[in-house]
Design a protein around this nucleic acid. Sequence first.
DNA 1: GCATTAACCACAG
DNA 2: CTGTGGTTAATGC
Length: 226
Amino acid sequence: MLYEICKYCHLKSAAAETLDSDELKKLERSCFQTQFAKGDLIFKQDALSANVIFIREGLVKIHIKGPEREQIIKINKGPTFLGIPTTFGDIINHYSATAITTVDVCFISNETFQQFIYSNGKFAYEILHDLCKCQLHTYNYCINHLQKQGPGRLADALLYLANEIFNDNNFLLPMTRHELGDLACCSRESVSRLLNEFKKDNIIQLEGKKITILNKELLSQISKRG
DNA sequence: GCATTAACCACAG
DNA sequence: CTGTGGTTAATGC
């Protein structure tokens, strides 16, 4: 495994950018880098939470097993921290994280992470910033799921992928229809039908897992209307 | 009641 | 894994 010294790492988080060279040395000593393949479980709901995890590169889905079905809460794209709420909120993970592409991660010990937050205000600010954005996403997600119908929820999921994850109207769906259903909160059958309807109405172009949003205006309207 | 919506089931490709 | 068709249950005119 390629070992990269934190100081020269080009995939640092905004928070790690605020560390001075002494702190970076400390980070190096408590940081372990590794790689996960697509489909690998990174950490598991209800298991003991041990580390802060930093995704250097790749996509990770955050999901929770509900009483009825699996729920995908969000997709995380590196470079970003992963699982801070579950690491500091409780000693048990409240959700699972699974790699949906090849993912490069660093495990950072809780103690080191905590020390930086105590001693470095800028570091703490960047972490707080991340957490707030995550919180806003969650509020939006709540409204989306509680008050919208199928088409609105799926439109929202597609816009989320295009705007937040890929920054492109044209992308390769990194998951199955079933998983997209878990994200948009509807059955896989509904996902199939709705995608085909969107295609029929020339809102999206669809070839297997390749999706191109043709009419973003209309898709946004469907998302807003519910 | 009737229409709409969406989940569930079953059966192909 | 995905698409399709029939069935069913809930909800709102």
